[in-house]
């Protein structure tokens, strides 16, 4: 019994100085990232089905709807894959909201708040883990895209730049969905609350069809909303065409979303 209490080391473990605080912040974030990634590995079904869904979308649009969609100057499969990339990572951001809602519901966040860890680590750890998951999903889509006939029209460097650009956007979206997750009473509701945001963004966009085919009242939104901007940038990088303006705009969107929504998420977290 005498060993249960252990040696008192508590009082010595206080962050002294900004350097140590920063190092602990990084270490706390990595611990939370690892914990979240382990959870993904422990539920292989979830990982499997979360990759099946985008594959279904590729097949659906490539073989079911694709025949009826004509995009001037480009084969539909080449047009589609950059859009699928962005749609998939946007859908993936929902897992940020579900994960946080679940942690809240189970009382884990309350427990984290009573630990001497960095306050930011729970949110940063969650968004970074979801970014890592998105990297895997993007690689799967690349392989599936190739299998159904997608071919890079520019070069590998530009293609990778396109992937980085949309992963940055996905990371930004995670912060937005973190706000939803921290506002929802439970994980089921978090999921339901996410879709009204997600559907207009991904489908009323240039991801699957040219915006020019939409009615004029919708076109204004569809053309300028962030998903379209990122899709257009990725498409330009992967298929060719003028890139500078699209890339600049999508980086601006991603940074803007983080600047506005991350503080909101942090505030929600503090009050949750």
């Amino acid at each position: 019994m005498t060993t249960i209490a252990g040696e008192r080391v508590g009082a010595a473990r206080v962050a002294r100085g900004p350097l140590r605080r920063f190092r602990w912040g990084v270490s706390d974030t990595l611990t939370v990232v690892q914990r979240n990634l382990l959870a993904y590995l422990r539920i292989p079904e979830a990982l499997f089905f979360s990759s099946v869904q985008p594959i279904m979308f590729v097949l659906l649009f490539r073989y079911v709807f694709g025949g009826a969609i004509h995009v001037p100057g480009v084969s539909y499969v080449n047009y589609l894959i950059p859009g699928i990339f962005v749609q998939t990572v946007a859908f993936g951001a929902v897992s940020t909201s579900i994960g946080l809602a679940e942690d809240l519901q189970k009382g884990l966040i309350e427990r984290f708040r009573a630990l001497p860890m960095a306050r930011s680590a729970v949110l940063t750890g969650r968004t970074v883990a979801d970014l890592a998951r998105n990297v895997v999903v993007v690689l799967i889509i690349t392989a599936v895209g190739y299998a159904v006939g997608f071919r890079i029209q520019t070069n590998v460097a530009a293609f990778v730049a396109g992937l980085l650009l949309l992963l940055l956007f996905a990371y930004a979206l995670s912060w937005g969905f973190a706000v939803i997750g921290l506002s929802a009473p439970n994980s089921e509701t978090a999921q339901v609350m996410s879709f009204p945001v997600l559907f207009p963004l991904t489908f009323a966009s240039s991801a699957f069809v040219p915006v020019a085919s939409m009615p004029s009242w919708l076109r204004g939104f569809a053309e300028h909303q962030p998903v379209s901007v990122v899709v257009d940038a990725a498409r330009a990088l992967m298929l060719g065409g003028p890139t500078a303006s699209y890339v600049w705009q999508s980086v601006a969107w991603s940074v803007g979303i983080v600047v506005v929504l991350a503080p909101l998420a942090v505030r929600r977290y503090r009050r949750a």
Binding site: R13, W24, S27, D28, T31, R35, L38, A39, R42, I43, K106, G107, L108, E110, R111, F112, L115, P116, M117, A121
Partner: peptide
């Protein structure tokens, strides 16, 4: 309400808390 992580093992839970305690 035992606030432990369902998806981790007992050992992993303790390791996580230990690390978060630096």
């Amino acid at each position: 309400y035992a606030a432990v992580d369902e998806n981790l093992t007992a050992r992993e839970n303790l390791r996580m808390v230990g690390r978060l305690n630096h």
